[in-house]
């Protein structure tokens, strides 16, 4: 499975879980279950990335179709550090998600742009209003 497909699965799984939670009512799956599902999928992503790195290092990855001169060169160390940084970022994001309340979590999952930029979370001292109004 390709990297993009795994990430897509991750988002779909989150959305499915959150919609199932809403239809089940308050007794549905908890935030912990959502985060556990997400974490499991993130681990798959990490495993996939690690596997790709190994393939590139071994020079057996044909998906990139390297030329003969590329096969002779060792994989640069830069890619390894970039992937480590990516993995660290994913882990931090997962921890951040786990510390949020459930409504923010569900809302953020609908906006992957905000999820990656770590924005859209109200501070603890914020003036908050949560309620329903009939217009």
């Amino acid at each position: 499975m390709k990297f993009e497909a795994i990430v897509k699965d991750l988002i779909e799984e989150f959305q499915t879980s959150s919609s199932a939670t809403m239809s089940d009512g308050p007794s549905g799956r908890s935030t912990d279950a959502l985060v556990a599902t997400g974490t499991e999928l993130v681990m798959q992503v990490v495993a996939q990335v690690a596997e790709s790195v190994e393939r590139v290092r071994a020079g057996s990855d044909t998906s990139f179709a390297p030329g003969p001169e590329a096969a002779e060169k060792p994989a640069p160390d830069r890619s390894t550090s970039e992937i480590e940084a990516l993995v660290r970022r994913v882990v931090n994001q997962t921890r951040g998600l786990a510390s949020q309340d459930r409504s923010d979590l569900v809302r953020q999952l609908a906006r992957p742009d905000l999820l990656l930029s770590d924005r859209g979370r109200a501070s603890q001292s914020a003036d908050t209003v949560r309620g329903r109004v009939e217009l």
Binding site: A122, D127, T128, V129, R130, R132, L135
Partner: peptide
Amino acid sequence: PEGAVDLSLGTGGEV
């Protein structure tokens, strides 16, 4: 003004 609206507002400023 059409039906119900669920609000989720948070800011360090004023609401």
